Simulated assay, not measured.
Amino acid sequence: MQHSNSLYRKRKLLNRTVMVLCSAAALFGIFWLLAILATLLWQGVTAIEWSTFTERTRMSGGGLGNAILGSIMLTLGGTVIGTIIGVGAGTWLAEYGRESVLGSVIRFINDVLLSAPSVIIGLFIYALVVLPMGHFSGWAGILALAVIVIPVVIRATEDMLKLVPDSLREAASAMGAHRWWVVVRVCYSGARAGIITGILLACARISGETAPLIFTSLNSNQWNFFDLGSEMPNLPMTIYQNMTINSFIPRQVELAWGGALILTLTILVLNIIARFVSRDANKR
């Protein structure tokens, strides 16, 4: 009896110790997150004004309008292309190639791509697209971002489709439905929220990517209205250049902080939306 009480006290002490350590680690991470957000707000809010969104980037002064527009085009383009390929590949893995050798190979390659540094992907697109074309372009940037999106969407699509009960597929097939109809009308309906969440998270990830764009779309201080064949202005590269090359100009540094704040808030909103979509799916 005494031994049992002693063992209970040791386990209780260990449990409390682990809880304290976990809570301290969580508070440590939250502190730095709040510190980063507070710094961005303090440094960047002074640069946020109407001209920031309407004027183009200049050597001194100006705004971030062209960079914001370019980032929207690059991000949307990369997300759309990556989503189309990713959903298709994830559907095939979940519905047709679950146990096949090709499916296992694709999953292995997808896992490698998930952890691949974005700068390597940028170099790959540089060698594959930029060098043959002879110049940087918006298309090259979109392709680089799409390669980052694809493995995320593949994983989300496959995992969500696997969660759809096989009984639903069998019931639809028993009623005479074709396989493609079952996938589109039954499986996608059950996995829709999870797939959308994966797409939103992939979009949030590529929104702030800088390394791939250095080798693909580069940057420009001019407006670019859907001319994807030329250099494309973008927010991450503008922030990088303003904090390095133009760091001796106070207004450019201020705009860099403002751009960082805009980028952070955008990514934060996308992550919050993804959370809400995922939570609604779990309630169902």
Rank of each mutant, 00 (worst) to 15 (best):
M1K: 11
Q2Y: 12
L7R: 13
Y8D: 14
R11K: 12
K12E: 14
K12G: 06
R16P: 08
V18K: 13
A26S: 09
W32Q: 11
L33A: 09
A35K: 12
W42S: 09
A47K: 02
R56W: 00
R56S: 13
T57F: 09
R58Q: 14
L76M: 10
I85C: 03
G86N: 01
W92A: 13
Y96A: 10
I106W: 04
F108V: 08
L113M: 15
A116K: 00
P117C: 02
Y126L: 11
Y126S: 10
V130K: 01
G134A: 04
L143H: 02
I154A: 01
M160G: 00
K162V: 00
L163M: 11
P165Y: 01
L168H: 12
S173C: 03
S173Y: 06
G176H: 03
A177N: 07
W180A: 15
W181S: 15
V182K: 11
Y188P: 10
G194K: 07
I195G: 02
I196H: 02
C203N: 10
R205G: 05
T210M: 04
F215I: 04
W223Q: 03
L235Q: 05
P236N: 04
M237S: 10
T238Q: 10
I249S: 01
E254S: 14
L255Y: 07
A256E: 10
G258Q: 07
L261C: 05
I262K: 10
L270R: 04
I272V: 14
I272S: 06
R275N: 09
V277R: 06
R279V: 12
D280V: 11
